[in-house]
C-alpha cells in the first residue's frame, strides 16, 4: 500500500493566525506569570532565580490558607443555595403565559448590572444607618451591621451573590424544563407519579446538561469573586471576607511582591482548573456507569 504520509506541509500555515492569537492572548501572558513565579524581583533590572521558593512560601502562608478555606466555603455555600433555588424559581415560571416574557426579562435584569454597581447597591441597601434593608432589620430588633460583624458581612455577601446570580441558574433551568416534551408529563400522569417523582425521574435527569453548565459557570465565577466584597466590605471586618483574588491583588499591586504574587496566581489558576476537572470528570464517570 502506498504511504499516505503528507508530502506538502504548507497547510500548517493556515492555522498560523489562530496560533498567533492564542499565543498573544493566553500562552505568552501565562508563561510570563510562570516566569515571574520562579524569580525574586527587586526592580525590573535586578532579579534572582529562586526556583519553587515562592510556591513553598505561598502554600505555607497562613493568610493564603485561610483565604483559600474562605473561598471554598463561599463557593460551596452559594452553589448550595443558588442551584436548588434557581430550579425552584424556574419551576415557578409559567410556561405559556402572556407574563412569561416579562418574568424572563425581570429575571435577566440582575445579570445585566455591572459587578461594582451590584456591590454599591447592596452596600447602601444594607447600611444600618440609611439602607432600607439594614434599617429594616435593625427595626426588627436584630442588631445588624455588616461592617462590624463578620457573620453579618458573610450573610450580606452571600445574599448579594444569590440575588445577582440565581437568575442565571433559573434561566438555564427554565430553558431545560421547556425542552422536555409533553408526552413525558402525560406518561407520568398516566403512571400515577406524584410531583416529587415527576421532578426526580423526569425533570432532574433532563436538566442534567444545563445544571452541569450552571454549576461549572457559578463555580468558576464565584471562585474568582473580587469586585463585590472589595466594594461592599473591603475584605473586612478584619480578614473575614478576604477571598483569594483580593489577597492576590493586595500582594501584586499593593505590595509589588511580583514573584510571590505570580506563584500565587499559578496556584490559584491550577486550583480552579482542578475543581472544574474534578467536578466534570465525576459527572462524566457517572454517565458511563
Amino acid at each position: 500500500m502506498r504511504s499516505l504520509k503528507p508530502r506538502d506541509n504548507r497547510a500548517w500555515f493556515g492555522v498560523l493566525p489562530v496560533v498567533l492569537i492564542v499565543a498573544f492572548s493566553a500562552v505568552i501572558p501565562l508563561m510570563t506569570v510562570v516566569n515571574y513565579s520562579v524569580q525574586d524581583i527587586l526592580d525590573f533590572n535586578t532579579r534572582f532565580f529562586v526556583g519553587f521558593e515562592w510556591y513553598r512560601e505561598t502554600l505555607n502562608d497562613p493568610r493564603f490558607l485561610s483565604a483559600f478555606v474562605r473561598q471554598v466555603v463561599f463557593s460551596g455555600t452559594i452553589l448550595l443555595i443558588e442551584i436548588p433555588l434557581g430550579i425552584a424559581v424556574a419551576k415557578g415560571i409559567p410556561r405559556n403565559s402572556k407574563l412569561t416574557p416579562f418574568i424572563l426579562i425581570l429575571l435577566a435584569l440582575p445579570l445585566l448590572i455591572p459587578w461594582n454597581v451590584v456591590a454599591t447597591i447592596w452596600q447602601i441597601f444594607a447600611r444600618p444607618d440609611i439602607g432600607l434593608l439594614g434599617v429594616g432589620i435593625n427595626a426588627l430588633g436584630i442588631p445588624y451591621n455588616y461592617a462590624t460583624d463578620p457573620t453579618h458581612a458573610w450573610i450580606t455577601i452571600v445574599a448579594m451573590d444569590v440575588w445577582h446570580w440565581t437568575s442565571l441558574v433559573a434561566l438555564l433551568a427554565f430553558a431545560g424544563l421547556t425542552a422536555i416534551p409533553r408526552p413525558f408529563y402525560q406518561a407520568a400522569e398516566i403512571d400515577g407519579a406524584n410531583r416529587w417523582q415527576i421532578f426526580r425521574l423526569i425533570e432532574l435527569p433532563r436538566l442534567r446538561g444545563v445544571l452541569i453548565i450552571a454549576i461549572l459557570l457559578r463555580l468558576m465565577d464565584s471562585f474568582m469573586i473580587y469586585t463585590e466584597p472589595f466594594v461592599l466590605t473591603g475584605g473586612g471586618p478584619g480578614n473575614a471576607t478576604t477571598f483569594l483574588s483580593q489577597y492576590l491583588t493586595t500582594m501584586a499591586v499593593g505590595q509589588f511582591d511580583l514573584g510571590p504574587a505570580a506563584a500565587f496566581s499559578v496556584i490559584y489558576f491550577l486550583f480552579i482548573l482542578l475543581f472544574c476537572w474534578l467536578f466534570y470528570s465525576s459527572v462524566v464517570r457517572n454517565d458511563d456507569s
Partner: peptide
Amino acid sequence: GRIRNVAQVFQFPVLYE
C-alpha cells in the same frame, strides 16, 4: 386520565431514563 386507567404509548418511546 389516571382515574380512567388509560395507558398510552407515544410516537417516540417515553421512559424514565
